[in-house]
Design a binder for these strands. Structure first.
Lengths: 225, 225
DNA sequence: CCGTAATCTTTACAAGGTGTAAGAAATGAC
DNA sequence: GTCATTTCTTACACCTTGTAAAGATTACGG
């Protein structure tokens, strides 16, 4: 999406842009309602310079969020996705992304408010979700995880259980170690993991879950008006 | 916490307050940045009347959120917490709260931004979480759920898996029926439940809670009973 | 080096939102 | 009917976003 056909962006422009983004991430994480003015002065520039780089406050926030997303993705890629059992890789992945995300707790909440448009939101999370999905599919093909549940659903389960764990830590109800252990247990169960000591699944080629038990189906309708 | 020593609140004051709250819930759900002015006119009063009832915009938002929390709690209480198997009760509970929450998608996201203070946030969610906790503990005592995981953690798991399901529906990646079915499967697995409809998990096939928790503290286990 | 274009700063303005204040008008309670 | 409560009107101060144009600086290419 970022047009790389930049027609000679001057060096000090890039420096300003980086300084603004740095300040934005830092200040917004401390207080999500920080004004553009405060960000500008923290970056050593004027408010108008900020507007020269980012047309609106919202786009500045978006750029800041993209920056930390990149950081998280880099951490995930350093965690070794394709080596060892999928269960271990998945836990490493989750740990890496949570560690990065844990550095910007306020920003990460802001993300959900920014994206009124679900498509934009999905696009931002896509690089993270894709990596999880890859590992999950690998685990399913290897028989480590239940192959009848859709990978997309399992990605959502993984992300949200990760949120549960970091939420309990943030709330002070669990230590990091307790949360990691609990996440480990519950995530592997939810994924239908088999014991790591062999015992391959006998079932194969079963279609994704959802065809059975239609009787309870209507209970989750989403009333709209 | 709400001082019930209301010294003669006049009838029209209550009417105004209700009208303001109604308008606030309605408009804020459509657009979270609605101005106090717009809410006031929609409620048929002036901005100053709103400020007479709610000292600040933030407290107005808080009151609106408390109102829909009450609504969700009422729906949960109507779902029959203490009858039948805990698994069924839990799913009914989750369904009731999600149905209410699904009516105010935008508001519910705003909630996370409002509460910079985690204590306030926890207090708001407490009535919902307490009901889930009660059912989960009942299930644990009856042997339906794994009693070695702490109820607090399982509450967090339940809430966040519920979020996963409604998130997938909102994003258009799953139908309501698919999401309900997936939630059913994954939640019961995470709780260590005995599978109801021929799920592949043999009773001893699932890794027990402490399988990987030997060396570490594993304090997330249920301390009582 | 030096000219030129890009970039930043200064200054200024318009619009809209929040929060406060005081007096007048109305409405309900008793 | 009286009286306290509630609401309305009008007004103000302050902050924030976004736009605009001028001049001052700085970097870049030759």
């Amino acid at each position: 999406m970022t047009p790389r056909q930049a027609p000679h962006r001057r060096a000090d422009a890039q420096r300003s842009r980086a300084a603004i983004l740095d300040a934005a991430v830092r200040l917004l994480n401390a207080h999500p309602d920080t004004s553009v003015e405060a960000i500008a002065t923290a970056a050593g520039v004027t408010r108008q310079t900020v507007y020269a780089h980012f047309p609106s406050r919202e786009q500045l926030l978006t750029a800041a969020l993209d920056r930390i997303t990149e950081e998280a993705v880099a951490a995930m890629d350093a965690a070794g996705l394709d080596t060892g059992p999928a269960a271990g890789a998945l836990l490493r992945l989750l740990d890496a992304s949570n560690r990065t995300a844990g550095r910007y707790p306020v920003l990460l909440q802001k993300i959900s408010l920014l994206s009124v448009d679900p498509h934009t939101d999905h696009e931002r999370h896509a690089p993270v979700a894709d990596r999880l999905k890859r590992v999950i599919q690998r685990g399913q093909e290897a028989g480590e995880f239940d192959g009848r549940l859709s990978p997309d659903w399992l990605v959502a389960v993984t992300i949200n259980l990760g949120h549960a764990a970091s939420g309990e830590v943030d709330a002070g109800r669990m230590s990091s170690e307790e949360a990691a252990e609990a996440l480990h247990t519950s995530l592997l169960r939810a994924l239908g993991a088999v014991a790591p000591t062999g015992t391959p699944t006998r079932e194969e080629g079963v279609p994704p879950a959802g065809s059975a038990a239609k009787a309870r189906g209507a209970k989750f309708r989403n009333p709209q008006k």
